[in-house]
């Protein structure tokens, strides 16, 4: 059943404020209660049709606590993350709005933070962003006026001190739970935990990592994180996702910046009769191992073009241990609204 703290008067409204919480969103509550959280990511549509968002999330409704709306990921142009987030909120979901530093300068970004919060966004993920060379507009101007760390600091200053970077006062500060990404699998490996500490010091309250296909490497990273006590200062959600085939895995490894896939994983896919099923099984096994790793507070699923498999993966991994994340049909109000709408 749903936790009473997670139900508001109407699904799209901010929840009742809780002491010690910075946001009025569901993700922060789930994490602070110590529940193992599951988030998933959708790639916004290349379309102005809002129904496409509903289609993308429907297959995993009720299996995830929050949905990330990516911001021009891979430097490809899609519907904006804030617009996607607003549409998700309208349906009652809890989005994690990603903000990348690639396309906007500090003036635009701070304006977007205010606008997003006004639309009901409770979670923001601060990213540096992929380089323009990775996308469909390599001739574009890369902005990178801020970086992920100065972006974290900026949003924290806006929220906690009620001030813009310039020092000018904000009358209604954005009440947002702020997160960042980290890639434990990219060089310089010894610096990654220090960088995580830097992000936490800059204001990161939760972390979503890059895809984890190398559990031993993740374990080494987490050992360092625990030595530094970082897992007690932020919630770490490990990134996971199914590989569709050995060919796809090789392509990702060669072409997607920052994704590390060990040879063993590729060999296992190659040796399987049904590579897609094997890819899913590998993902489920990794999730189960991460579930047991001290300091891991949840998983973040990225199943690009395999959104339909998210529900199965969460279900088969058993990580929710019987808990049901929010979904529309569990909320009486929403049903009432829907029947009214249908009538």
């Amino acid at each position: 059943m749903l936790h009473p703290d997670d139900i508001g008067p109407v699904p799209w409204a901010p929840l009742k404020p809780l002491p010690g919480h910075v946001s009025r969103g569901r993700l922060e509550r789930v994490l602070r209660r110590g529940e193992f959280a599951v988030t998933a990511e959708i790639n916004p549509p290349d379309s102005a049709d809002p129904d496409e968002i509903e289609h993308r999330i429907k297959p995993f409704e009720g299996w995830v606590d929050a949905i990330n709306a990516t911001d021009g990921s891979g430097a490809h142009c899609h519907m904006s993350s804030i617009a996607v987030s607003a549409l998700l909120i309208r349906m009652g979901y809890s989005p994690v709005t990603q903000i990348s530093c690639r396309d906007h300068n500090r003036i635009a970004i701070q304006g977007n933070v205010l606008g997003a919060a006004a639309l009901g966004v409770a979670n923001i993920l601060c990213l540096t962003g992929d380089g323009v060379q990775a996308g469909d507009h390599p001739e574009a101007k890369p902005v990178f006026d801020l970086d992920s760390i100065s972006l974290l600091q900026t949003i924290r200053t806006m929220r906690d001190e009620g001030k813009f970077l310039s020092g000018r006062r904000i009358t209604g500060p954005p009440q947002v739970f702020v997160g960042a990404a980290e890639n434990p699998f990219a060089p310089p490996h010894d610096f990654r935990p220090i960088r995580l500490a830097k992000k936490i010091a800059a204001g990161a309250q939760f972390i979503q990592t890059q895809y984890c296909y190398d559990v031993p490497m993740m374990a080494r990273f987490m050992a360092r994180v625990r030595d530094l006590g970082l897992h007690e200062r932020c919630f770490i959600l490990a990134g996971c996702g199914p590989l569709a085939s050995a060919k796809a895995a090789k392509w990702i490894r060669a072409n997607v910046p920052g994704v590390h896939i060990p040879d063993g994983v590729i060999a296992r896919l190659e040796g399987a009769k049904n590579q897609r099923a094997e890819g899913k099984r590998i993902c489920v096994e990794i999730i189960q191992q991460l579930r047991e790793m001290p300091g891991i507070a949840g998983v973040h699923l990225m199943a690009y073009k395999q959104e339909e498999s998210i529900a199965e993966i969460v279900h088969e991994s058993g990580v929710l241990r019987g808990r049901t994340p929010w979904r529309r049909d569990l909320v009486a109000h929403m049903q009432a609204v829907e029947t009214q709408g249908a009538a």
């Binding site: 530093c101 060379q133 990775a134 060089p187």
Partner: peptide, 26 residues
Amino acid sequence: PKGLRNGPCGGVRDNGHCEVHPDMPC
């Protein structure tokens, strides 16, 4: 190429080279 002043992005290649310019060490 991203002008980062706070540490590496997440795109550093396995060989320690830059995501944007593969011929350049990060």
